[in-house]
Amino acid sequence: MLSIKNLQARIEEKEILRGINLEVKPGEVHAIMGPNGSGKSTLASVLAGREDYEVTGGEVNFDGKDLLDMDADERAREGVFLAFQYPVEIPGVSTTNFMKTAINQVREHKGEKALDAVSFLKLMKEKMKLVEIDQSLLSRSLNEGFSGGEKKRNEIFQMAMLEPKLAILDETDSGLDIDALRIVSNGVNALKSKDNATIVVTHYQRLLDYIVPDYVHVLYKGRIVKSGGKELALELEEKGYDWIKEEAEAAV
């Protein structure tokens, strides 16, 4: 589904990704871990199409198409979803109105008919339950004055509404208490299927107790320096990142 080959990217003059290789197949959950500043969030942003980053090399193929050739909105319509680490507050735009616009633009792209008001509300009610989010929150301005947990639940709610093929969760666990973490993870797990895939970007192993990965990759200085199964995450939790850094430095 997603094939990343030797991906390199920088912001301004600073090189951040220095050759990422990653294969993600339908039905898989991949965790990207790594110390601060290793390039995890950059990878998530580059895949979603944030223009602040300049891709300087490599290729990304998504379902047979060149992902890097598309603007952020087109990637989203093709089925890529980024759950933001810091969801943006947008006063004056309600979540409901925003979601309705987004869903119908995605549907139009797929050649489907726009949802009428009734079907849209029905869909919304169903997905709201999944992340235990309240209607009143969705009528308010997008993320404005939301708590950290509410913002993250809103991200997963949007993901549930849009049903992406590839979900990228960027530090979704940051700023969440244990209850919110459970709710968000349950949401993500409920959306998993054999046809879609998830990339979980996280600093801590904690989230991976709830969203169990098939593969764990450790990012360091813009490269994946180690890959393994879910036990790698536990090892990192226990030993920290220093041994990875040492291994990586020794290999250079």
């Binding site: 603007d71 989203a76 980024l82 933001f84 987004a102 633009q105």
Partner: peptide, 10 residues
């Protein structure tokens, strides 16, 4: 970017 990342055209 946030709006576009949900599929809304620029």
């Amino acid at each position: 970017f946030y709006l576009m990342a949900r599929g809304i055209k620029k």
